[in-house]
Amino acid sequence: MNDLVWIFISALLINNFVLSYFLGLCPFLGVSSRLDTAFRLGLANIFVMLITALCAWLLNTYVLIYAPYLRLISFIVVIASTVQFIEMVIKRLSPALFRALGIFLPLITTNCAILGLAIFATNRGYGLAEGLVFALGAGAGFTLALVLMAGIREEVALADVPVLLRGTAMNLIIAGILSMAFMGFAGLFSGA
């Protein structure tokens, strides 16, 4: 049990996917200009990550022991098609949920955070429960980083920033400072 909590906290804060593994930077920089969009993208991301963890576990346990060299290709194909399938199901069952998350789902599937999650979970030999907790932590960490960034950017939009610095350069420097702040979490469990 303790292990699962540790995996969750580690993926959420200490090894935050965005701020210390640099995964999922494209949406992090692209879709973080408004708070509510950022939050919804984060939720959609948690959702896709949970599905990914499940798919990766199924593939690793039942298929890839016979053909390990197909790992990368099968991860991509299976994850992308599963997400697309679930997208269609949601559209039928819950149009409200689809409107909230739907437009982001295809975007997220090709995101490196998703593939990274599957690969990390495989490399560390996580079982099903560990994989799901890891996905939940990583997704929540991604949402946290995205929401923090969007909050800061909404404030910065009102500030008088030099013309040259506007856009990506500014966002990267903000991300650098956020990442520095998150480094403070590194000592979280070592003292206890």
């Binding site: 701020l19 640099f22 350069a169 990267l172 420097i173 991300a175 650098g176 400072i177 520095m180």
Partner: peptide
């Protein structure tokens, strides 16, 4: 990690 963000930001 923060160094990566800062360096790329400054290079941009």
């Amino acid at each position: 990690p923060p160094g990566g963000f800062l360096t790329l930001g400054l290079l941009l």
